[in-house]
Simulated scan of single mutants.
Amino acid sequence: MNRTALALSLAGVLSLAAATQAAAWTRSSSTTTARGIYNTQAAGACAGGTCSRGATTTGPYGGTVSRSGSVTRTAPGTYNYNRTTTGPNGNSVNRSGTVTRY
Rank of each mutant, 00 (worst) to 15 (best):
V93S: 15
G77F: 10
T86L: 02
N80H: 11
N94Y: 02
T56A: 13
S15A: 14
P76D: 08
T64S: 15
S52D: 09
N89V: 10
L6G: 06
G77I: 08
L10E: 02
R3E: 13
A42H: 11
T58D: 08
G90Q: 00
N94S: 06
A75I: 00
S30M: 14
N2V: 13
S52A: 14
R95T: 08
T50N: 08
T50D: 06
R83F: 05
R27C: 10
L16T: 12
T33K: 05
G87D: 13
T31K: 15
A5H: 12
G59F: 01
T100P: 00
C46N: 09
A7W: 06
C51R: 00
T85Q: 07
P60F: 01
W25A: 01
N82D: 09
G63A: 08
R67E: 08
M1V: 13
A24I: 14
V93W: 07
S15V: 13
N80A: 10
S9E: 09
S9R: 13
T31S: 14
G54Q: 15
R27D: 07
S92T: 11
N82E: 09
A7H: 04
Q41P: 04
L16H: 08
C46G: 04
V93I: 14
S96T: 06
S92P: 02
A43L: 10
T4P: 07
S52N: 12
T85C: 05
C46V: 03
G87I: 06
S66T: 03
G62D: 06
G12E: 00
S15K: 06
T20C: 11
T26L: 11
P76M: 07
T72W: 03
Y81T: 01
A5W: 13
R101E: 05
Y102T: 15
Y102A: 12
N94T: 10
A23S: 14
T86R: 00
T33M: 08
T58M: 09
A23H: 08
P88H: 04
N89R: 05
P88Y: 03
R73C: 00
T86V: 11
A43W: 10
T98A: 00
N91F: 03
A43Y: 10
W25S: 01
L16N: 09
R27T: 10
G69F: 00
